[in-house]
Each structure stands twice: as structure tokens, then as C-alpha cells.
Design a protein around this nucleic acid. Structure first.
Length: 600
RNA sequence: UGCCCGAUGGUGUAACGGUAGCACAGCAGACUCUGAAUCUGCUUGUCAUGGUUCAAAUCCAUGUCGGGCAGCCA
């Protein structure tokens, strides 16, 4: 391996990525603006994380890692009707998997059950919740942050706002609220007294009013060109149990109110989110500055979310695929979810390399899936064990090879990593080769086996096709071949050049395995461009076959990755059991032959 | 419609007033006991029009196109 390739192989892990957000952070570090950089990854637990979240995770944890900071994992759980512990658990698992051996030492968790502490900062009442460094305590005693853990403090801040005359209880119906806001019209309840607002808000909290009858609204500017400044709602009534706080509350803060304050309570310095929140930034800043808080305020920065070709990314649509049974679950290997990609056999390293390669900007583009596929192949090429397996078997009999004789041939585990050694592969008179590797009437430039033609069996002999046997329907069911018995590696004619080399397995020794061949879920680059995205589902996105594998594959492990030579990369599926192998095709090898234009 | 944001090869991204570079994709070739990997070479780009400047992808203005927001979702 040359110096250049060594450097290239390790580059993504060593090179410091650069983008406009990191530039800002670097500037703050240079001017010593904060004692420590503190980011956060704040998913709502209302679905599984997808590759778009992976981009955000890599950004937020990457910044923490590169600038000696911390990144909190926070459940943004202010809407009890949509959230669930199932999602809390999956989010934790996915984040931990993605950042393992990379930024897990930057992961901000908190001591289990911890709530914000009341303290005095610069002579002023304040609240703060600090992050525990996970390495310092057993994971069982730590947990992610929850916005819902701050409901008491957030409620207190709302009361402060009311006292300052900056918030009021509004009795308008949802429809009226909409109508008034659209027409820049003041709510008739806007000028209620502080005392009345305080009383009403307390009674909202006490559960005196049904859902939807009253809200708490910030008093900002009903005529603002920015809709989010037209007296936005900051609290609504929801008589619903919450997955984390149970029945403690019947009023819940809106995102805009809860998010900036959660950032403040955790001491976040850089609150990074996607572009659609850009118009909310003035409100984010308004709330924090209106409250006269004693510690430095967090600031919001926005970047473009990921769009990937040939898939959909919204949680709503992914949820639909799951609920309508169009996939087997959130972790179906065809899903762009982190758990789906993991099950498919994609590694965290590949996902991180992908995130690095696509960069961070404010431009809304669609990333070519080929970029993802390249990152996956590059990673798997380095780590996958090479194995021989035949997906669609065609029987071959070597007529000049003695029946009953078995040879153990030496096969390289990984030519990219010679230190991984070799394993023995049995060879015998009856073999399977790939149906695609034989053509009775070969097209031009067909390098594989044809009547009267020769081909190299990988690690074994050069064989010549002498006879083609067909069934009554005319299908080729068996080939009779002769081998050049001196052409084995180390043999007299081992150096003979034949154009093609194909893979094979010994029929008597072959181990059957269920193999799930996955392809892209949709047939078009932008499934959600117009109409119903489900009409573009790829009917051939999953095919299940029984393959014949070399015996060493019987001891395949879930952690390992395999390349079935000349075919694709595979990973063991969780459905495997002792004596029952199930492989998922992670991604095919590049196939330039398949791209040859059809020639007559 | 109002407000906000954006625009660099086919795609994604760099260049921070001074030689338009990288990656993916594509094409051609070398090598090959994987039609993979690896290696070599190549094609293709600053949305438009003005202005500022010795010098503009970069600054300004206008326009065009694209995206976002207008939930008691996040």
C-alpha cells in the first residue's frame, strides 16, 4: 500500500472538517467567548432516527469532539400525544451506536432523575443542570436529558413573563387565533391585567379548563412581518399523560418556548438546527432576552437538512411505511433509518464518512445516493472477509477429477488486510458455480464460462467446459468440465492466463443460507416530489433466495462483514439462529460489466 | 400574498477581493486468480444584468429561479 493510499484511508478521521458553523465556533473559541463549547442533539421521541439525524449527530458531536466540548442528548418531549418510550430507547441505542469509539466521551448525559438545580448567578436567581461525563459513572445511573424534566422551571419562566407584562392568557379558539394572526389583529384578551393572567394561568395548570379553551401567548408584536412574532402561543392545555412526567401536568409548553429555555438550562452555547427554524430565531432570542437571564445566552444556527435520492426522509412518511406494512419495521434494512442501515450491515464509520463527505451548508440540495453507497463500499472493502458463495447455483462436474477426493485450498481472507490470514476451502469433483457465469451463447467480451471455453476457478483450477446438459424444457442444468490439473496455485501451469476468474463452492460441502437481496426502496430519485410517494415503491426492493456458501461461513458472526466474492457485501441478520444462516445484502460490488451496453 | 433563506460542472461541496479546487458520478486506459479494489488520464461549472475595484464566485443594486414559514407539531 502506498503512502498516498494510507493517508487517504485515514484522512476522514484525522482531518478537521470545515464549514460555516464550525468557522463560527472556531471564532468563538479563538476569542475565548465561552469556557467550554456545549452543543446538543435534541430529537423528539416520536419516531426512529434516520440518516438525516445522523448528519446532525455527526455535526453536533463532531463539534464537541473537535473543540473539546460536550454534546447533550436531549429528548425534546413537549407533546405528550405524539411521544413514546419506545422511541426514547431506540434514539439512545442509535446515538450510542453511531458515536461509539468516536465521540462517546463527549456525550452529555445526566445523573438519573436529576433535575435543574436552583442557584444564584451574579446575585440573581437561576437554574442550571449540568452534564455528567458518561465515562465517570456506570451507564445504569445515567440517562439523557429531557425537556420535560424542565417543566417546573419553564412554568416559572412563563410566570415571570406574565409578571413582566410580556405574556397573557388568551381565550380565542384555535380558528379565531389563526384568523386574528393572519390579519395582524390583536387578541381581545391581550390587555388583561397581570393579576388576571396570573390567576388564569394558575387555573390552566390546575386543570380547570378543557383542552383548547385557553392558551398562554407571548405579547410581542401582532403586526410583525414575521408570523412567529405575532403573539405566539407558548403554552397549551393538553389533558394527556406524558411518557416521562406521567400525569403531573395538563399544560405543556410549545416548542419555541421550551427549546430555547432548555438550551439555557443546560448551558448550551451553540444550538444547531435545520433551516425551517430560521424564521423562529427572532422568537428564540426574544424569549431569552425578555427573561433577563443571568448566564450567557445560547444562540441558534441553522443548516440544510439532508435529502437523499431514491428515498423519503420525513418521519411521517417513514411511519406510514411501517404502519401500512410496506416494510417489516423501522429497522427494515431498506429503511433510511439508522437502525435499518445498521441491520443492513452499514457501519458507524461508513455513516460518519458519509456525513463528512456531504458537508454542511444552507443550500437545500438532493444528495446522490451514490455518495452514500461509495462511503459504504469504501469502508466494507477494508474490513470485509472475502468468502465464496453462490447465489443461483449451476452444477458443474469435473470429469477428470477423482470422485471422493477432497482438497483443502488456501483462500485469502482479505487482500486489503493480509494480516487477517487465510482459511481453507474444500474442493471436490462436483461444484456449484453462478448461473450468470455461464452462457451457452456468450455476448461479445464475455470473459466467463462458455461451451469449449476456459475459466479460472478462484483459488483452484482452470477448467474447460466440455458438455452442456439440459432438461426437457431446454434449461441448462449441469456442465461437464475438465480441469487443467497442474494449474492450481503453485502448480506447473499456475501462471497460465485465462481471461475470467469465477467463484464456486464444493457441492458436497456447501452450507445453505437464506440471503435477502435488498435494493433501493423507490424507483425514482424524488419519490415525494409529487403525488403519493408510495406509488413509486420498488416492487423488487427485496428478494429472498437460498444461497450455497463455503463451509467457513457456518461460523459467521454478527459483528463481521463479508464480501461474497464478485457479488456483494453481506452481514448476518438478527434472524439467524444456530444452524440457520440469514444474510442481508448490504450493497453490491460495483459492476462495470453490467453497465456494458447490450450488444445484439 | 407577506416575511426569511439560498443559487459554483450531472450531483454534493471548497475558494473568506488575487491561478475556480475536491469528492461522487461519467468516459478512456493500465493492472488484476474478484469485470471489485488500486493506478493514470479526461470531459463538464461561478443564475442574469448593471455597478464598485488595478482585480469580483466573493462586495452593492435590480431581476430570475429554488427552498422555508404562516399547527394549540417539532
Amino acid at each position: 500500500m502506498s503512502l498516498a493510499t494510507t493517508a487517504a484511508a485515514t484522512a476522514p478521521a484525522e482531518i478537521r472538517p470545515s464549514d460555516f458553523i464550525r468557522d463560527i465556533v472556531a471564532g468563538h473559541v479563538a476569542e475565548n467567548k465561552y469556557p467550554q463549547i456545549h452543543t446538543r442533539f435534541p430529537p423528539e421521541p416520536n419516531g426512529y432516527l434516520h440518516i438525516g439525524h445522523a448528519k446532525s449527530i455527526c455535526l453536533n458531536f463532531g463539534i464537541a469532539r473537535e473543540f473539546g466540548g460536550i454534546c447533550n442528548l436531549r429528548m425534546d418531549d413537549t407533546n405528550p400525544t405524539k411521544e413514546d418510550v419506545e422511541y426514547v430507547d431506540s434514539i439512545q441505542a442509535d446515538v450510542n451506536w453511531l458515536i461509539s469509539n468516536w465521540a462517546d466521551d463527549r456525550l452529555g448525559y445526566k445523573v438519573k432523575g436529576a433535575l435543574p438545580a436552583a442557584l444564584t448567578t451574579n446575585g440573581q436567581a437561576d437554574h442550571f443542570i449540568s452534564a455528567a461525563v458518561p465515562r465517570l459513572a456506570p451507564t445504569a445511573t445515567l440517562e439523557p436529558f429531557y425537556a420535560s424534566d424542565y417543566f417546573a422551571e419553564i412554568y416559572g419562566y412563563a410566570v415571570e413573563l406574565i409578571k413582566a407584562g410580556k405574556a397573557f392568557v388568551c381565550d380565542l379558539t384555535p380558528e379565531e387565533t389563526d384568523e386574528y394572526r393572519r390579519h395582524a389583529k390583536e387578541s381581545p384578551f391581550r390587555h388583561r391585567s397581570v393579576a388576571e393572567n396570573l390567576d388564569l394561568f394558575a387555573r390552566m395548570r390546575a386543570g380547570e379548563f378543557p383542552d383548547g379553551t385557553r392558551t398562554l401567548r407571548a405579547k410581542i408584536d401582532v403586526a410583525s412581518p414575521n408570523i412567529w412574532l405575532r403573539d405566539p402561543l407558548i403554552y397549551r392545555i393538553r389533558h394527556a399523560d406524558h411518557h416521562h412526567t406521567g400525569s403531573a401536568w395538563c399544560i405543556y409548553p410549545m416548542y419555541d418556548f421550551a427549546h430555547c429555555l432548555s438550551d439555557y438550562l443546560e448551558g448550551i452555547t451553540h444550538s444547531i438546527c435545520t433551516l425551517e427554524f430560521e424564521v423562529h430565531r427572532p422568537l428564540y432570542d426574544w424569549i431569552l432576552t425578555s427573561l433577563n437571564l443571568p448566564r450567557p445566552l445560547p444562540h441558534q444556527y441553522e443548516f440544510a437538512r439532508l435529502s437523499l435520492g431514491y428515498t423519503v426522509m420525513s418521519k411521517r412518511k417513514l411511519m406510514q411505511l411501517v404502519q401500512e406494512g410496506l416494510v417489516t419495521g423501522w429497522d427494515d434494512p431498506r429503511m433510511p433509518t439508522i437502525s435499518g442501515l445498521r441491520r443492513r450491515g452499514v457501519t458507524p464509520e461508513a455513516l460518519r464518512a458519509f456525513a463528512y463527505n456531504i458537508g454542511i451548508t444552507k443550500y437545500n440540495g438532493i444528495t446522490d445516493v451514490a455518495v452514500l453507497e461509495h462511503a459504504i463500499r469504501e469502508d466494507l472493502n477494508k474490513r470485509a472477509f472475502r468468502r465464496l458463495a453462490v447465489l443461483r447455483p449451476l452444477k458443474v462436474v469435473i470429469t477428470n477429477y477423482p470422485a471422493g477426493q477432497v482438497e483443502e485450498l488456501n483462500a485469502t481472507n482479505n487482500p486489503e488486510a493480509p494480516e487477517t490470514g487465510t482459511r481453507p476451502v474444500p474442493f471436490s469433483r462436483e461444484l456449484y458455480i453462478e448461473q450468470d457465469d455461464f452462457r451457452e451463447v456468450p455476448p461479445p467480451k464475455f470473459f466467463r464460462l462458455k461451451p469449449g471455453g476456459e475459466v479460472r476457478l478462484k483459488y483452484a483450477y482452470i477448467i474447460k467446459c466440455e458438455e452442456v446438459i439440459k432438461d426437457a424444457a431446454g434449461n441448462v442444468i449441469e456442465l461437464r468440465c475438465t480441469a487443467d490439473l497442474d494449474s492450481k496455485t503453485g502448480g506447473a501451469t499456475a501462471g497460465r492466463k485465462v481471461k475470467g476468474t469465477i467463484h464456486w463452492v464444493s457441492a458436497a460441502h456447501a452450507v445453505p443460507a437464506e440471503v435477502r437481496l435488498y435494493d433501493r426502496l423507490f424507483t425514482v430519485p424524488e419519490p415525494d416530489a409529487d403525488g403519493d410517494f408510495k406509488t413509486h415503491l420498488n416492487p423488487h426492493s427485496k428478494e429472498v433466495i437460498t444461497a450455497q456458501c463455503e463451509p467457513s461461513l457456518a461460523s459467521a458472526t454478527p459483528e463481521s462483514r463479508y464480501q461474497f466474492e464478485r457479488l456483494a457485501y453481506f452481514a448476518l441478520d438478527q434472524d439467524s439462529a444456530p444452524g440457520k444462516l440469514v444474510f442481508n445484502r448490504t450493497i453490491t460490488l460495483k459492476d462495470n460489466w453490467a453497465k456494458e451496453p447490450p450488444k445484439s
